[in-house]
Design a binder for these strands. Structure first.
Length: 219
DNA sequence: GACCAGGCACATC
DNA sequence: GATGTGCATGGT
C-alpha cells in the first residue's frame, strides 16, 4: 500500500521534473562542504559561499585544513551562521586528516552503518548531513530526510506532524528497493517539488502531486 | 520589516 | 527524554 503510494509519487515527480542529476556539487568534497553549509539555509546562499571558497582556491582538503577558522568564516559568510559553520567544517576536515590522511576515498571504504556512526561522531554533523554525505558523496544507499521530504510526507498523510527522522527514513528503507540511484533521484525530486510548490504555498496549488490527493486536492 | 531557508548542539527542566 | 534557544545571511 505504502510501497505503491511511494512508487506512484516517484513516478509522477520523475515524469514532471525528469532526472535531477543531483547533488549540485562537482566533487565528493564539495558535496560534504555543501551539506554542512546548507544546514537550515537556502541553497542559493550556500552557492555564494562555495563560490568564495573556490575563488580563493580553498576547496581542497589540504587548504581547508591549513586555513584559519576565522578566515574560513569570512569566506562562507553568505551561507549564514558562518562562525558555527566554520567550526563544523574544521571539525570535519580535522577528522578526515587525522583518521584518513585527508582522503575521502579512504573514509568511504566503510560500509553504510560504520560510515554513518563515524560521521555522526563529528561535532556539527547530524543525521541529515551525514546521510547527504553518504548518499551523494560516497554513493552508498541511505535515504535522506530533510524539511522538504517531511513536508511532502505530512501533506500526503503518510506521517503525522510529530514524525521524527528515523521513522521517516524507515518508511523509505522498508518500502523501496535499496538502490543508490533511486534514493539519490527520489530525494532530489522532493527538493525540486518542495522548493517550487510547498514553500509559502500551504494549499499546494499547481503541485504535480495533486493527483495523489495531497492537501492541494483535499482542502 | 517580518518571515523563512535542504540543522545541529547545548542548556534546562 | 522533551522542549527551548542560539547561530546569521539573503530572498520574498
Amino acid at each position: 500500500m505504502l510501497q505503491h503510494k511511494l512508487t506512484q509519487m516517484y513516478q509522477i515527480l520523475f515524469e514532471h521534473f525528469g532526472h535531477r542529476r543531483w547533488w549540485p556539487g562537482n566533487s565528493p568534497l564539495e558535496v560534504c562542504v555543501g551539506a554542512i553549509l546548507t544546514q537550515n539555509t537556502s541553497w542559493k546562499n550556500v552557492e555564494k559561499a562555495i563560490t568564495n571558497l573556490k575563488n580563493a582556491g580553498n576547496l581542497k582538503v589540504s587548504l581547508l585544513h591549513k586555513i584559519s577558522t576565522d578566515e574560513l568564516a569570512t569566506l562562507i559568510k553568505p551561507a549564514g551562521y558562518y562562525n558555527i559553520k566554520a567550526k563544523r567544517l574544521k571539525n570535519f576536515i580535522t577528522h578526515l586528516v587525522k583518521r584518513h590522511q585527508g582522503s575521502l576515498d579512504s573514509m568511504f571504504q566503510a560500509d553504510v552503518d560504520e560510515l554513518r556512526t563515524e560521521l555522526l561522531s563529528i561535532n556539527g554533523v547530524g543525521k541529515e548531513t551525514a546521510d547527504c554525505i553518504i548518499l551523494y558523496a560516497a554513493n552508498k544507499p541511505i535515504f535522506v530526510i530533510d524539511a522538504y521530504t517531511k513536508r511532502v510526507l505530512e501533506r500526503h498523510g503518510i506521517v503525522g506532524q510529530d514524525a521524527d527522522y528515523d521513522s521517516m527514513q524507515m518508511i523509505f528503507h522498508r518500502n523501496l528497493k535499496e538502490d543508490v540511484a533511486l534514493f539519490n533521484d527520489f530525494h532530489a525530486q522532493f527538493v525540486a517539488v518542495g522548493s517550487r510548490h510547498c514553500r509559502r504555498n500551504p494549499k499546494c496549488a499547481g503541485c504535480p502531486l495533486e493527483r495523489l490527493g495531497g492537501r492541494g486536492s483535499v482542502i
